[in-house]
Simulated scan of single mutants.
Amino acid sequence: MKLHFLAIISLIAFTDLYAQEYYFPDLNANWEQRAAKSFKINDLSLQEAVAFAEANEYSGSRDLRIAILKGFEKEPFHKILGPTKKRGGPAGMILKNGYIVAQWGDTKRVDMTFSVTKSFLSTMAGLAEDEGLITDTKDAVGDYIWDGTFDGAHNSKITWEHLLQQNSAWSGELWGGKDWADRPPSKGGIDDWKLATPKEPGTVMEYNDVRVNVLAYSLTHVWRKPMPLVLKEKIMDKIGASSTWRWFGYDDAWTVIDGLKMKSVTGGGHSGAGIFISAEDMARFGLLFLNNGTWKNERLISDAWIKKATTPSKPNVNYGYMWWLNKKGDRHWEGLSENIYYAAGFGGNFIVIDKENDVVVVTRWLEPSKIGEFMTKVNAAF
C-alpha cells in the first residue's frame, strides 16, 4: 500500500513537472520573448532554421497580381476579381508555450494570406455548429440554404462536411466563376473536364475555390451577417489581434440578407481577395488552436470541433476541415509527428500547429516546396 501511495505521488509530481502553461499576449502589449535555452532548445539549430527560411524566399513576383496571373495562367477565364497587395519579404515567428523564441522579417506587415484563409473560414463553420446554427456538419446544406444554390439531384446531396473537406463536387457558377474552370486537371482537354459528370459528393477531393466560396456564401446566410464581423467578434477581438487585418470578397460578390446588402468573402486569393493579415495575428490564431480553442481561461472554439476539423477525410488522409494534416500520405513530412496540422496558402504562407512540442510556427513567403525541410530543421532544434 505504501509503495502504491508513493507511486501516485510520483506520478502527480511528474505530471506537474511536465504540464505546460501557455503564455497569451495581451492586446497591444509587447509579445514576451524567451531565450531558446530556457526551453532547452538548441539555439544554433533554431537559427539555422530561421536562416533557411530567409534564404528560401518564394520565387514568384512580389507584385502579387503578377504572381497570381502567372501561377494560374493555365486556368480558363482566370482573372483578378478582388483586391490584391504587393507583398513583403520572408517573415515568421516560432512560439514555444506561447512565448516567442525566434522571429524574422516584418511580423507586423499586413500581406495577403491566400488559402490560409480557408482555415479561418472552417472556423466560422465550427462556431456555427458550436452555437447551434448548424446542427451537424453531416446535414445537407440544402436544408439551410434553399435559394437554389443546392437544388438538383447532385447538389442536393452535398453536406457541410463535403464543403469543408473540399470533396463536394458542387456544380454551378458563383461570382462569375464556373466550378469546372477552377484549377482544371493538367491532363486532358478542357471539354473533357467541362462536360464530365460531377463526381459523387464525398468521394474525391478537388481543390476548388468556387466551391469554397459557396461555403462562405452559405455561412454568411446561416449567420445572417458578414463573415469578417463574425471572425472579429467571436475570435480576433478576444485573442487580442490587431485592427489591421481585413477579409475581402470579390468586387461583385454581394448578397442581400434581411434587407441588408452584405459582401460574401472568399476562402482564398487566387483571384484576389481573402484575408490580409500580419504574421503576429496569424500566430495568435495558431496559439488559440494549440490550446485547443481556449484563450487564457475563455473557451472560444469547442474541443469537439477542433477534433472534427483535424480528422482525416476519406478521400484524402492529409486533409480535414480545411486544415492540412501531417498523416502518412502524399503530403507527409517524413520524420515529423503525424499529429502536426497546418494552414497553407499560395506563395508559401503557413500556420503550423505542433501540439507535441507545444509549438506554433508561422512562416511567410517561403518557397512552398521547402516547407518540409524547414520544419525538419525547426524540429531538430527541440
Results as ranks from 00 to 15, higher is better:
Ala253Trp: 07
Val265Glu: 03
Lys238Leu: 08
Ser218Thr: 09
Ala304Thr: 13
Ser218Glu: 10
Arg246Leu: 12
Leu287Asp: 08
Arg246Val: 11
Tyr217Cys: 02
Arg246Trp: 11
Ala283Gly: 00
Phe285Met: 08
Met227Gly: 12
Tyr250Thr: 13
Lys234Val: 01
Ser218Asn: 00
Asp251Phe: 02
Glu298Trp: 02
Gly267Tyr: 01
Lys232Asp: 14
Trp305His: 04
Ala283Trp: 06
Lys261His: 00
Gly240His: 06
Thr294Ile: 13
Ser271Arg: 14
Arg224Cys: 11
Val230Pro: 05
Asn291Tyr: 02
Val265Tyr: 04
Val212Trp: 01
Tyr217Val: 06
Trp295Asp: 07
Ser264His: 09
Glu233His: 08
Gly272Asp: 03
Leu215His: 07
Lys234Arg: 15
Val265Pro: 02
Met282Gly: 09
Leu231Asp: 04
Asp281Ile: 09
Leu219Val: 11
Asn297Tyr: 10
Lys232Val: 13
Leu219Tyr: 02
Tyr250Lys: 03
Ile277Arg: 08
Met262Asp: 04
Gly259Leu: 00
Ser271Tyr: 15
Leu231Glu: 05
Val256Asn: 06
Gly267Leu: 02
Arg224His: 14
Ala241Leu: 10
Leu219Pro: 05
Ser271Thr: 15
Gly286Lys: 03
Gly269Phe: 06
Asp251Asn: 12
Lys232Arg: 13
Asp303Cys: 14
Ile257Gln: 09
Leu260Glu: 15
Arg284Ser: 07
Ala273His: 09
Gly267Trp: 10
Ser264Val: 15
Ser302Arg: 10
Gly267Pro: 05
His270Met: 15
Gly240Ala: 08
Asn297Gln: 13
Val222Asp: 00
Pro226Leu: 01
Lys307His: 08
His221Leu: 09
His270Ser: 15
Leu260Gln: 15
Val214Cys: 06
Gly268Leu: 05
